[in-house]
Design a protein around this nucleic acid. Structure first.
Lengths: 127, 127
DNA sequence: CCAACCTTCACACACCCGTGGTAAGGTTGG
DNA sequence: CCAACCTTACCACGGGTGTGTGAAGGTTGG
């Protein structure tokens, strides 16, 4: 059996059982359940739990922050609203009609996409 | 004069002076100062303040969330760490051929990662 | 069958967040 | 010079977060 129960998982990931449940409530890591409802943590979940701890301690962020990042990835409307807010910093051309503006929006979007994709890989510089 | 003092800015943006200071403390909107140290809100700041309110109320998010999004845009290391965490997320079907899997990967990356890497600033990678 | 797990629910508690208030003191303009 | 601003620095307070502990009850395995 390659799945650990909550106490076992807690031990190998340096969280407490309580926190594993809390993390699940936060929607961050939801292990599958046995027929009786026992949480079963597989290798993937364990890895994610360790990485989560690393994230939290190394960057001093909260679980809520991760949750928000998750919302950002799932809710496109939110993401673009937030992006728009940041973009409001530089002076955006006020005389461009909405259609144009949207276009510019999307254009910038795709460009940044490329950047992100490149950034996500080890050797992206091969332009 | 095209800059408002804190009370005036508060009135036109529907925040309280207290909150304007708080928002500044949070690093979200930092108005320039007069020689005597008075906060001076220009049109751009006022606009951003109104948009901020919209964001917060419409999506029910907190100022801390916006602050975190800001960190994500500024701190590339954080952004990639978070992105990496999400990457490990979905239970990937083991029987899908690599090509398919890659496709799914990229699709997932698309607009979501753009957010994190959406540095609109001039030199994102000044390496 | 019984100890040792597991489950959910709930209380507790310290600490941050959003927000108001207020005090002590500098700036400004009539 | 004085009223009406501004500044920073605190106290307060309700609600959310992160975390432990415990109760009441189901599951499991020897």
């Amino acid at each position: 059996m390659d799945a650990l129960t909550i106490h076992e998982a807690a031990e190998t990931t340096d969280w407490s059982p309580r926190m594993l449940r809390y993390i699940e409530d936060a929607g961050l890591i939801e292990p599958r359940r046995s027929q009786a409802g026992y949480r079963l943590y597989g290798a993937a979940e364990l890895q994610r739990l360790r990485t989560l701890r690393e994230l939290v301690t190394r960057f001093g962020i909260g679980l809520g922050d991760i949750g928000f990042a998750m919302r950002l990835r799932r809710d496109e409307e939110l993401a673009s609203a937030v992006a728009a807010w940041f973009q409001a910093q530089p002076r955006r051309p006020e005389n461009v009609p909405p259609a144009e503006w949207l276009r510019w929006e999307q254009d910038k979007h795709s460009k940044l996409l490329a950047l992100a994709a490149a950034h996500a890989r080890p050797e992206p510089i091969a332009a």
